[in-house]
Design a binder for these strands. Structure first.
Length: 827
DNA sequence: GGGCAACGCCCA
DNA sequence: GGGCGTTGCCCG
């Protein structure tokens, strides 16, 4: 038998399948998805690999390379399922990346194979002939003596660090010592040591309490034993803490046979529960209808994904929970994807409260060990419902029945790291291949997804009423141009302040939304016009007044803001624009008797920062919550009756074709935070663009109207969903290198396209400098490729050929190339 | 990406 | 010729 494997070895060359022979003894221990160790390279170094497919014949017969035999099969079950192995190949093509990039998504870092080179003498001392011994010089004799004396394996590296390398080489060429590879499997499991008394001893002590004195123990040891008489089994770390004894004490007690230490693997996943009221909510008729329809689809094994378009507060989460329950009852597992785990503590709590300890939480902020543990528990079948971010979709479920993608319009479902996959696309692939029900939900579906639904690629289901039967909060638009003309230059309009005053007096809570953290947009010297910019990126520094610093919101670079302008030495440094910090300052001056809270990336940096702020606000410890788009993500505040959107224009004027869509989404989502409880809500929307269709339709809750206008625009300009757009960014610390390579790429691609008779003029845009010229000290140039009727597969294979296979031939050394399909943003 | 042979340079 | 750093090639 033969297998093709994917090597867990980095490098352009290793991005291919390698064939190996399977020795007869391993034939029934191996299958697709198993981990194996294989010899690789001239030295036959053991490398870890995953079996991609099985073959009965050696297909490479007659080729000039020799087929090697695999060393071993690691583990007695496949690590990755057959379906997921197919998904890996699909993703490699789809996202123009390597096998390894994809493989790593399915692979907790807990498994590693460590290979070391070992030096061993060929003959034993007795076998060594006199001639052989005579031929050695002093240095060689020293080495070989060391090898004979050592009880353990001696590694090549440690030997050469102490002895001459060439002496060792000469021993090898004389045939006296041998070099072998040895490998060790490392599994990242946390072990907990539990300490308990030896049973016999315990009995003796219980029979005769004086027996303990016969042991002649030191003070600390005696203390430990006495403690263990009272406490059956204690974690070693706790023992050390409690009694202040040292590791040594424990060890010597163990040596004497007085105590025993037991090592057990331990599940590390943090099990923090946030308690919310566990009320079982009865579904309203609309919710019921949606649930029934999807259950029917699951029964019929319809492979079509569902898109639930439900207004904010329509109770999508309840629908999801109901579906999870059904799928569980059918013996299948579910995964519930959310945009950002930190922002959804309420959702996690609801899932956990409903389904108890079969619920796991998975996201990229877990430590590698914690990820490994969730992975293992999912594989064991102990975790059957996972709530997590996009990467949770790759967990090793046995029979996944349901993938829920909440807030499906959110950008975070597209990965910004290689492989730049889209979790929604992966889910759709799974729905198609393995009959998993995929349910997308949003109050503001993305334009391409709504288009898919209208085209029949998704089944569209609607929830157009709030679960509590409240009306949607009324949105009133405030024209900030008029506000300015009437002499109010404050970022807070008179109408907003008046309404805040009214609601606060009634004892209600207010949310103010501004999509800009920090104090102000940027800082400028009003005398010479000097603008403070980041040293690494082409970005203005945002003023964080509370810290007296300017911070780059891209790379995190910080700079103390001096009193005097570094250019003209004048003191007239002023801030332009507004951020959440400035709003907070304004509001506390206006309403000194009301407490404010601020929620943005700065105020939530600490562990559970978001959760703490949300809890405080929910308990009513503050009346006004000021925040960035973190606020928009599905939070439930019962007592909020007024939402103020400070500026709807920040997003609108972003240099990106998705900015209208994003503006619409943000306004709708943020407005949705008002009036979720018993009381009605209202929204004040401040803008300089009162007539813009994105703002108008958002204010009227007219998703369909927005969609109709936006889809026409996109058709005219050939954007998603009418074209696939591939963006290739070249980054280098030397601007001319970045530029030159982007041109080389364009020219090579053009050449290849024209060779195939494809018109390249309509498809290739650029090269252009990116809107953000420099990030992290690297200049960025981009080429954008639209597929305008060209087969996307052909285009991608060309790009892959240039950027991966012919990388060395085409590009300068050290240039960063990032390839993205339908990226979130083009800045 | 990494292992390794081949190469070239320095030094005695 | 040995010692050692650099380079370029190849990997089932």
């Amino acid at each position: 038998m033969y297998v093709d494997v994917i090597l867990r070895q980095k490098g352009r060359f290793s991005d291919m399948l390698f064939s190996y022979r399977v020795p007869d003894s391993l034939e029934n221990k191996i299958d697709i998805g198993y981990r194996v160790s294989v010899p690789f390279g001239k030295s036959n170094k053991p490398i870890e690999a995953i079996v991609n497919n099985l073959k009965s014949e050696n297909e490479s017969e007659g080729t000039d390379f020799e087929i090697k035999e695999i060393f071993d099969v690691l583990g007695d079950e496949p690590l990755i399922s057959r379906e997921n192995m197919e998904l890996i190949s699909w993703m490699r093509d789809r996202y123009i990346c390597t096998y390894l990039d994809c493989l790593n998504l399915f692979f907790p870092k807990g498994y590693t194979l460590n290979s070391t080179k070992i030096v061993k003498p060929v003959f034993s001392i007795e076998e060594l002939t006199v001639e052989q011994e005579m031929s050695l010089d002093q240095a060689e004799r020293k080495i070989i003596n060391e090898l004979y004396l050592s009880k353990e394996d001696v590694s090549y590296d440690s030997l050469t660090s102490r002895h001459s390398k060439s002496k060792l080489d000469s021993l090898i060429s004389k045939g006296l010592v041998n070099i072998q590879w040895s490998y060790k499997e490392v599994v990242n499991e946390k072990k907990i040591k539990t300490v308990y008394l030896d049973e016999d001893l315990k009995c003796k002590i219980q029979m005769d309490s004086d027996y303990i004195n016969c042991l002649k123990l030191g003070k600390k040891q005696l203390e430990t034993v006495n403690f263990l008489i009272l406490n059956d089994a204690v974690e070693q770390s706790a023992l050390l803490d409690l009694l202040g004894v040292s590791n040594q004490t424990i060890k010597s007690l163990e040596k004497k046979g007085i105590i025993k230490i037991k090592e057990e693997s331990h599940f590390r996943a943090p099990r923090q529960f946030l308690t919310v009221e566990n009320k079982k909510i009865d579904l309203n008729s609309q919710q019921r209808e949606v649930v029934d329809r999807i259950i029917e689809g699951i029964r019929e094994q319809s492979r079509k994904p569902y898109l639930i378009h439900g207004v904010t507060g329509s109770g999508k989460t309840e629908v999801f929970l109901e579906l999870i329950e059904y799928v569980l009852s059918q013996g299948m597992e579910s995964v519930f994807l959310v945009p950002e785990i930190a922002l959804t503590p309420q959702t996690i709590a609801r899932v956990k409260n409903r389904f108890g300890n079969i619920v796991g939480v998975f996201h990229s902020q877990l430590s590698e060990g914690e990820k490994y543990d969730v992975f293992r528990e999912v594989k064991n079948g102990n975790i059957r419902v996972v709530i997590g971010t996009r990467s949770a979709i790759f967990l090793p479920f046995d029979s996944l029945g349901l993938i829920i993608i909440d807030e499906e319009h959110d950008f975070s479902y597209k990965s910004e790291k290689t492989p730049k996959y889209d979790a929604i696309e992966v889910a759709r692939y799974k729905a198609f291949k393995s009959n998993v029900a995929v349910v997308l939900g949003s109050a503001t579906p993305s334009v391409p997804d709504y288009y898919n639904a209208k085209n029949g690629d998704y089944e569209l289901l609607e929830l157009n009423k709030r679960a509590n039967n409240n009306l949607m909060p009324e949105i009133s638009i405030v024209d900030m141009r008029k506000e300015l003309h009437s002499g109010n230059s404050s970022p807070l309009s008179k109408e907003l302040v008046a309404k805040m005053d009214l609601e606060l007096k009634k004892g209600n809570q207010v949310i103010l939304f501004l999509n800009k953290r920090g104090y102000a947009n940027f800082m400028e010297c009003k005398d010479c016009g000097h603008v403070f910019k980041c040293k690494n990126c082409d970005i203005t520094l945002t003023n964080h007044k509370s810290l007296k610093k300017g911070i780059c919101h891209y790379c995190g670079y910080e700079e103390h803001i001096p009193e005097r302008c570094p250019k003209c030495n004048m003191t007239n440094i002023g801030s332009v624009g507004v951020g959440t910090e400035k709003i907070e300052e304004l509001v506390s001056n206006l309403f000194p008797n009301h407490k404010t809270l601020r929620m943005d990336r700065d105020s939530t940096k600490k562990k559970n920062g978001v959760q703490k702020i949300l809890e405080k606000f929910n308990k009513g410890e503050a009346d006004i919550l000021i925040g960035t788009q973190m606020l928009s993500k599905g939070h439930d505040f019962a007592n909020v009756t007024l939402v103020g959107i400070i500026s709807a224009d920040l997003m609108l004027n972003f240099p990106d074709f998705k900015s209208y869509e994003q503006t619409f989404q943000l306004i709708t989502q943020v407005s949705g935070r008002a009036g979720r409880g018993e009381k009605l809500g209202q929204v004040v929307l401040q803008t300089y663009n009162t007539e813009h269709f994105a703002i108008r339709s958002a204010a009227n809750y007219d998703f369909k109207g927005f969609y109709e206008t936006e889809i026409k625009l996109r058709k005219t300009f050939g954007y998603e969903p009418f074209n696939n757009i591939i963006r290739v960014v070249f980054a280098n610390s030397d601007e001319s290198v970045a530029k030159e390579n982007s041109f080389r790429f364009r020219d090579t691609l053009k050449y290849l396209m024209e060779e195939k008779g494809i018109d390249s003029v309509r498809s290739i845009l650029g090269p252009n400098e990116c809107s953000i010229r420099m990030i992290n000290n690297k200049f960025r140039w981009q080429v954008i490729i639209k597929n305008h009727g060209v087969d996307i597969k052909l285009l991608k294979s060309m790009i892959k050929y240039i950027c991966i296979k012919k990388y060395e031939n085409v590009f300068s050394k050290g240039i960063d190339i990032s390839i993205e399909i339908n990226p979130n943003t083009f800045i």
